[in-house]
Structures are given as C-alpha cells and as structure tokens.
Design a protein around this nucleic acid. Structure first.
Length: 503
RNA sequence: GUUCCGUUGGUCAAAUGGUUAAGACGCCACACUUUCUAUGUGGAAUUAGGGGUUCGAUUUCCCUACGGAAUACCA
C-alpha cells in the first residue's frame, strides 16, 4: 500500500444514476479522501446502442449535488485522460492483439445466430452452453481453424470477436477486501468476449486496460461484478500487470419483497430512487429526484453511508468530514441491505433542524403562491417556530398556514373536544384580556391570560383549547401565545370573534 | 439448471468462542404541554433449521432451506 490511492467510479451513461450507483460513488469518494487519494470519474460508454443523451451530465450534476465531486474526469484535471471510453477506442485494439500474440486470447468467427442456436439447444436439454475449453475446438475460431483459414477470414473482412482463452484445470485464488478469499475453478469459466465485432472493447477489456493506465489502486464496485472477478484477475496476469485491490459492495435491496432496488419500487412506495429528477429524452417520462422531493444532500449521504457500512459505535449522525474519518472498507457488510424510506426521512428531519431558517423561509416562500407578497423575515420567524415538526419544506404549509391565513372552518373533532357550555363566555373574556394588552409581546399576552386563568382557578384547557381552535382552526401548532404575537392583536381578536360567531 | 456471494428483531445493524445479544428507524404505551406530526421515558421484538467441534458456539466446520447476483459481441 505504498502506491497512492486512486479509485474510480465508472458508470455507463445509459440513464440517470440510481441510488445504488450513488452509494458506490460515495464509498469510492470516502475511501479516496480517507487515504488522501484521488477520486476519478470514468464514463463507460463502449455500448453505443445504449447511450442516452444527457446521462453523463446528469451523473456529474448528481455527484456535485451530493457533495462528492470527482477530482479527475471528463473536463477536470485530465492527467490520465481521456475519461470517456469512446474517446479511448484507439487504445484497446493493441491490447487485444497483445493477448492474441501471447496466446491468452483468440479470434472467434461464430455468428450471433450460431451461438444463439447453441444456447437454446442446450437450454432445451436442461444444460448451459458455455463457450470454453470443452467445446471451443468444435466452434469457429483461430484455435479450431487452420492458420490459412483464419487469415483468409480476417483478410476478407469477416466479422470477428476476440475471446479470452480461459485455462483448464486451474484453481484461482481471488481476494476481496470485504469478502476475503474466494476460490474459483477455471473449468466453469467461459471464454469471454474481450473485443467486439464493432471495433469496441467489451467492459472487461476496457475496464482492465483503463484501470491499469489510470493507475487505479482499488476497485470498489457493486457485488454484481463479483462473478467477473476471476476473469479480471486473469487479465491482469495475462498482461503482466499488477492487480489492484478489489472490494465488492453489497447490493441495495427493495424495501419490501425481493431483489435489487428498482425505479418501480420508488413509484410504488412513494420515494425517489434517483438523486435528481430526470426526464427520459425519448419517452419524456419524468422520474422524481431526492433534490426535488426536498431531501437535503447531507441527509441522503448520511443515510446511504449506513447502508452496508457502520462505524461500530453508536454515532449515527455523520457529516461528510466525519464519514471520511470513520470510513473503513473492512467494516463494510457482506449482506445486501434493504432500503428504508422511513429512515432517510428521519435523517432529513434531523438535518432540517440544522438548516438556516432564512434559507428555508426563502425556499418555503418560493413554493407557495400565497406567500409571494409576505415579508421573508416574517416567514423566517414562522419557520423557526414550526420546523422542529417538519421533515421537508413541503410540510411547512400544513404546519403554518394559520400564520398567514385565518381558519376558514374548524376541525369537527376539535370543536367537540374544545367547546363546552361556557366557552363563549370564556372566549369573550379572552378577547377582552387580549385587547387589554398594551405592549404586545409573547410574555405580556401570556401573563395576561395565564394570570387570569390562575386567579380564577379555571382549567387551563377550558381557556386554551378554544383559543387555539379560534386561531388555528384545529388543535395543532406551536405555542398559542407565539401565534397570537405573530399574527398580531387585531387579527387574534378577529379570529376569536369568528369562532364565537360560529358556535 | 450451474457457479459464486450471502442469512442476528419488521428494517439498518453491534458483539466474533464466555455479556441480561448494543444502538438506530419503525411500531406500541406513558409522560410533558394549551394542542401536535415534536421532545422525553419505557415496552414488545432477533442469532433461518439441523448436525459436528468445544467445558461453552451468534461467533468455527458440514448439510439443508431461503435470498441475491452472474450465466450476452450490456455495463
């Protein structure tokens, strides 16, 4: 571990970055920062058919919003670039050739139809078709054909792929930081395509070449890559390159049921699975995003960090800085983690309390047309009073509308609970007491009304509940005197009158 | 089907040969208070099943079950 730490996040731009991808990026980022290393972004766009317009900039914007920007990547500190595999296309052919020369790979001419036929045929017999040592000599490739035939095919421009020649009867010892040692029998491995007939490398080749050229020290990626690890190890060996260290992260699972988290789960249970909202360029379908749904990036990062990792202490609230300090790949779990929408909401509630009230007030004001004419300072004071109950800015209106608009009707249950025979009498007295307050402040309103209650030995609830009902329209909200002070004496009296009239 | 990875309360999870098996979310109850979706206190709830090793197993080993991933000229 004397080499500088360099890690990469290597998404393929086939759509918006999903929450699992964000978690992978986050762990890469934390590991890089912890070891004063470099976090590289590489775009794996070797499949031209699946390229989606705008996906790359979406990925960049998402990382930035989360506060985990890359150090090196497209358009940024390009010391090991280019960072799009499509722009590195010219690099890969020579490495494929190198493997053919060294006998680690070979040309294969089988058509997609032929292979498809074999697969279907095997499947029908309950077997699996594997292109490797046990049948490669029966197929069309440079191991089964004569040298002349091969050359003729190549010269005539026939389509070919380059396949890795997987060895027979070997046991591979793989190492994973999270999972420990893994043993693999090479006989079950297939001769994976390294180089496609369209002139592009497959993921496997491009990945190894780029990780080597970009001097990646640690490959931290999702568990779905674990089955490819054997191939990747062999590729490093074949090239004679030093193998980086690997860590395969557990998957993020659906909140209920089985399987990997998917967009559909979010739609069904009402939470986003993408950091930012995304509109599909073709279908124009819009997917909601954490940002637009009112989540704070700190909350999302904190939550995501705890999906598959924990510090082993009781601390759960972590700033990014603290996460960097505490993070350790050795403490990453092996088992997949279920996504819990309630928990991320709880984190958001926590981070809400840490936000600046004026900023929140501005966001609140922008979100409601009713507030456009109201002084932002007033809104800020309201926010201060109600935010402890809120998880999202979108909760604010429900919690605070009575600071801006008089109640139009009264909650029937609350009416039943608060209104007694003597309520009108008490409300009239409360109104009078309010009128009598000269210098309107929370303290003066309070001492006036509470003093009267105390000296007359009336039940608190008998006075306070109707008063609250008059002001709010329901039995909710912050301190009654805070509300009275905020809306003012005149408005308070108007609302008391309105309730008296309604009884 | 095959290969690999995994399995501690409903969920996230700590502990790794010896503890009453932490803590958090959620749930329930109670308290506080003028109300509450807040806060506080408390409660219910876990080692997948079977076998082996051991004085002792959540921890090690084996089997079974279950779950996941991979099995493409996709990444």
């Amino acid at each position: 571990m004397t080499k500088p730490v360099r890690v990469r996040f290597a998404p393929s731009p086939t759509g918006p970055l999903h929450i699992g991808g964000v978690r992978t990026a986050l762990f890469n980022y934390l590991f890089a920062k912890k070891h004063k290393g470099t976090f590289v972004l590489r775009i794996e766009d070797t499949d031209q058919n699946r390229y989606v317009e705008g996906a790359e900039s979406y990925i960049v914007e998402s990382l930035n919003w989360c506060g985990i920007p890359f150090d090196e990547g497209p358009g940024k500190n390009e010391t090991h670039g280019p960072y799009r595999q499509s722009e590195r296309k010219h690099l890969y052919k020579q490495y494929a050739d190198q493997l053919i020369e060294s006998g680690h790979a070979y040309y294969a001419f089988d058509t997609a139809e032929t292979l498809d036929f074999h697969r279907k045929d095997h499947e029908a017999k309950g077997k699996t078709f594997i292109y490797n040592w046990h049948n490669r000599l029966k197929l069309s490739n440079s191991l089964s054909l004569s040298q002349e035939d091969v050359q003729a095919k190549l010269d005539s421009g026939e389509d070919y792929v380059v396949r890795f020649k997987s060895p027979q009867d070997q046991t591979l010892h793989l190492k994973d930081i999270i999972r420990g040692d893994i043993k693999i029998d090479t006989n079950i491995l297939d001769d994976k395509v390294l180089f496609k007939s369209d002139g592009m490398p497959t993921y496997h080749l491009a990945n190894i070449v780029d990780d080597h050229l970009m001097e990646v020290s640690h490959v931290i990626r999702g568990e779905e890559w674990l089955p490819s690890l054997a191939l990747h190890y062999q590729l490093y060996d074949a090239f004679g390159w030093e193998t980086p260290q690997f860590a395969h992260l557990p998957l993020i699972l659906k909140p209920t049921g089985k399987g990997k988290l998917s967009k559909r789960d979010g739609d069904k249970l009402g939470f986003p699975v993408f950091p930012l909202a995304w509109q599909d360029p073709k279908s124009h379908e819009i997917s909601r995003g954490y940002k637009q749904d009112g989540y704070f990036p700190e909350a999302m990062v904190n939550f995501l960090a705890f999906l598959g990792w924990n510090p082993g202490t009781e601390q759960e609230i972590f700033s990014l800085e603290e996460l960097i300090n505490a993070f350790d790949l050795e403490r990453v779990n092996k088992a997949g983690a279920r996504f819990d929408p309630d928990k991320i909401k709880w984190f958001n509630h926590h981070y809400m309390q840490l936000q600046n009230d004026y900023d929140l007030a501005q966001a609140f004001q922008k979100s409601r047309a009713e507030l456009s004419e109201i002084d932002t300072q007033y809104i800020e004071m309201v926010v201060t009073l109600i935010k402890e109950r809120a998880s999202f800015v979108s909760d604010f209106w429900e919690l605070s509308h009575f600071f801006f608009v008089a109640p139009k009707d009264y909650d029937p249950k609350a009416l039943k609970k608060a209104i007694k025979d003597d309520t009108v009498e008490i409300l009239n007295k409360t109104k009078q007491l309010t009128e009598n307050v000269e210098d309107v402040s929370v303290e003066n309103l309070q001492s006036s009304i509470k003093g009267w209650i105390a000296s007359n030995e009336i039940g608190f609830g008998k006075v306070m509940m109707p008063l609250r009902l008059a002001l709010v329209g329901a039995l909710q909200g912050p301190d009654v005197f805070d509300i009275m002070f905020m809306i003012g004496k005149a408005e308070s009296i108007r609302r008391i009158d309105a309730l008296i009239a309604a009884i």
